[in-house]
Nucleic acid binder design. Structure first.
Length: 449
DNA sequence: ATTATACCCTAA
DNA sequence: TAGGGTATAA
């Protein structure tokens, strides 16, 4: 497989990382995804293992572009200004590689983890071949925090729109770039897209942000975001180092050094952050690999496949107690990297992945067909799409873009494991506690640095 | 200490 | 009419 022009090649088996799965399974909401459509015949030589997509992510100073073949990750960096010398350029690409290793946590051997989870858990074992390469990203905590405040009572599609719109409105474009060459669109003249970094806390802390976000369709989360940003900025004076991370962002990073429960306690002080959102942040950007965020999906998975008692009422809400029950049970099943394992199951449960390998949630998915899903591994290699498929990046003029709700689809009616007497750990903090803790945030944090 | 209800918006 | 939650008030 030839390296695409302008790209660097990093050898990496796709079982270690599947971009197609990881970048749209609800961890990060800021990756642009472009289908690459090749002519099946013609003068362009294409192997069946050619990358099917390009993925783009905007950092504060550069745009990272990725493609993937079964054994190679291709990366390419675009800067606002072309690097002066070739040496300079090489240096910059090396930085990008460093970022990639960190962001995708490439030092963690995913095969070993899959092996371990398979031994521990027959349910996982059934899925491993169909959902390989799903690993946890190591995201920026600030971006992660805001994104997941957006996630409450919401679906991936809308969260993505909200985050995109947030960036467009509150951070200037870093650069503009044409979409990658798409042969089906050779005739059409394509518009360059502008790429925006994630806005820093000080920008979102401004009081008027709440109402603006509201008008942008953020709903009640608008206030959460603005107030959380304000809390953060207030607690950590900005001594504004122009281009770098702000102090409050750095402080969020230091939560990586705390114990899980300490870090969680800090996160829960923010407005709009409850247990579930806090756990998402712990897992996805604060290195707490054992943490399992429990949403209604995960709860259903736990009931269906792991013998957890169904919630008492017909329509019971997620109580802290139930949350801990689910959490403890699954943590026990999956062990040290339970949060990572959860992500595989969670992804497998997304409707858009019921036909994993096919590009679009709108394709007539085999979806609700729990039967076919459970049978032998179909091991579908990602097939280059034959027809143009709607990408999430379709230009959106109006705010009403049809979106596909990510719904649950049964993984499989498997023999349920016998219920396990799980011990409860941890306890929800009372309202009073939380109020006190919130009041203390400034003081606490001030003494911390 | 637990439990119920509103919340913003979208899809069904 | 319910949803990939959280903040409030009972």
């Amino acid at each position: 497989m030839a390296t695409p022009v302008g790209f660097h090649a990093l050898p990496l088996p796709i079982v270690q990382l599947s971009l197609a799965a990881v970048l749209k399974c609800g961890q990060s909401f800021r990756w642009s995804i472009f289908p690459l459509l090749y002519a099946s015949h013609g003068d362009i030589a294409v192997s069946p293992t050619s990358p099917t997509h390009e993925y783009r992510f905007c950092l504060r100073d550069r745009l990272v572009c990725l493609r993937q073949s079964p054994d190679t990750l291709f990366y390419h960096t675009v800067f606002p200004e072309v690097p002066t010398s070739p040496t300079q350029k090489a240096l910059k690409e090396a930085e990008t590689l460093t970022w990639l290793r960190d962001y995708f946590q490439l030092d963690i051997d995913l095969m070993k983890l899959y092996e371990d989870w398979s031994n521990r858990d027959p349910v996982f074992n059934k899925l491993r071949s169909r959902f390989s390469g799903i690993r946890m990203l190591r995201q920026d905590p600030w971006e992660n925090l805001v994104s997941f405040i957006c996630s409450s009572n919401n679906n991936i599609s809308r969260i993505t729109k909200m985050v995109t719109s947030l960036c467009k409105h509150y951070s200037p474009p870093l650069l503009s770039l044409l979409p990658p060459c798409q042969l089906d669109k050779l005739g059409e003249n394509q518009e360059p897209e502008s790429y925006h970094p994630f806005p820093p806390p000080s920008v979102l802390a401004a009081p008027e942000v709440a109402s603006v976000l509201r008008s942008l369709g953020f709903g009640y989360r608008a206030e959460f975001i603005q107030r959380t940003a304000a809390m953060l900025v207030t607690a950590h004076d900005l001594d504004t180092a122009a281009d770098a991370r702000e102090p409050s962002e750095k402080w969020l990073m230091t939560l990586r050094d705390l114990d899980t429960s300490e870090a969680r306690e800090e996160l829960l002080k923010f407005i709009g952050v409850g247990r579930k959102v806090a756990d998402c942040i712990l897992l996805m950007s604060l290195d707490k690999r054992e943490v399992i965020p429990v949403d209604t999906h995960v709860q259903q998975i736990a009931v269906k496949h792991y013998g957890l008692r169904a919630s008492s009422g017909t329509k019971a809400n997620m109580t802290p107690k139930l949350y801990d029950e689910v959490n403890t049970k699954l943590a026990k099943v999956w062990g040290d990297y339970a949060g990572w394992a959860h992500s595989v199951l969670f992804t497998a449960d997304l409707k858009s992945f019921s036909s994993y390998g096919l590009p679009s949630p709108s394709s007539p998915a085999i979806s609700a067909d729990a039967e076919s899903l459970g049978k032998e591994a179909i091991a579908v290699p990602p097939t280059p799409p034959l027809t143009p498929s709607p990408s999430p990046i379709k230009r959106r003029r109006a705010r009403e873009v049809t979106s596909q709700p990510e719904q649950a689809v049964a993984i499989r009616d498997e023999e349920t494991l016998q219920p396990d007497d799980s011990s409860f750990s941890g306890s929800a903090s009372s309202l009073a506690d939380r109020v006190k803790k919130r009041r203390r945030v400034t003081v606490d944090v001030a003494t911390k640095l």
